[in-house]
């Protein structure tokens, strides 16, 4: 009981103090650009719990989800192919190194040329950024398949889809998950950026509209919402990871015990 209390205290003390500090230090703020926290919270409720939830938040999240899923499929598929074949890897490695090094936001103007300014453009932008960490981590994971396991599979004549599913993807999955985690934060960044360029709906668009219209408390509330979304998505990701990699964390925990 006391240990649970102690943990709760450790978890909550600093965040509560920080929010309290923000609340009281901004309470009597007359600075136009730094409104009191109470006003931001009121704006938050008025702005986001209404039509905007369906009009702005959902389209953004849908595009993010679509782009992320496509990047996962593409990254894992290409990654497995490149990771399995030595020749293919030597052939495409320099190209991949270069393409990966391009900061994804600069591709937005180019993708706009090709795909216009609709939903397709935003999804492609998200895919173009998310795919690299997934792809490169998959390549590394597939390359580092345990040799004894690979030999065992060969002696038991485990081939084709069964080999892919039970050996290759399984042993690469911790690496793939690492890549997917990096890709998620890049995806959120690109979701916002693609909407800042040209859009008529979406979180990034709306927040920039607020900023241009000097609706400062609303703008702060948008920043707050984006932050909360980032936190929420990373929490969801961690839950999924814990399920998918339960076997892996189990092995690690056993290995670590003396």
């Amino acid at each position: 009981m006391t240990s649970a209390l102690r943990r709760a205290a450790a978890l909550l003390t600093v965040p509560v103090l920080l929010v309290a500090l923000w609340w009281y230090s901004s309470a009597n703020s007359t600075d136009f650009y730094r409104p009191p926290l109470s006003r931001i919270l009121v704006a938050f409720r008025e702005t986001w719990f209404g039509a905007r939830l369906a009009d702005d938040v959902l389209p953004s999240l849908t595009r993010l989800l679509l782009g992320y899923a496509a990047a996962l499929l593409l990254g894992v598929a290409v990654g497995v192919a490149v990771g399995t074949s030595y020749r293919l890897r030597a052939l495409v490695e320099p190209i991949l190194e270069f393409l990966r090094a391009i900061p994804p936001p600069v591709l937005v103007p180019i993708i706009m040329l090709v795909a216009g300014i609709g939903d397709l453009m935003k999804v492609i932008v998200i895919v173009s950024g998310c795919v690299w960490p997934i792809l490169l981590n998959t390549v590394e994971g597939v390359r580092n398949v345990d040799e004894i396991l690979a030999d065992t599979c060969r002696s038991y004549r485990v081939r084709g889809m069964a080999r892919l599913r039970h050996l290759v993807l399984r042993s690469a999955s911790p690496q793939i998950v690492t890549g997917a985690r990096q890709a998620l934060s890049i995806g959120i960044i690109l979701m916002v950026i693609s909407e800042m360029f040209a859009a008529s709906s979406g979180l990034g668009f709306t927040v920039v509209q607020f900023q241009r219209g000097f609706a400062i408390p609303q703008m702060w509330s948008g920043v707050l919402l984006l932050g909360l979304l980032g936190v929420l998505l990373s929490l969801l990701f961690r839950l999924a990871e814990r399920r998918i990699l339960r076997w892996y964390h189990g092995i690690r925990a056993i290995e670590r015990e003396p």
Partner: peptide
């Protein structure tokens, strides 16, 4: 122990969310 939760919370905030904020400040 005291900062773990705060760091876990602040880290995933996408940096581009701050763009409108830093633009006006």
């Amino acid at each position: 122990e005291a900062t773990a939760s705060t760091i876990e919370f602040l880290r995933p905030i996408p940096s581009v969310a701050l763009i409108p904020l830093v633009v006006v400040l």
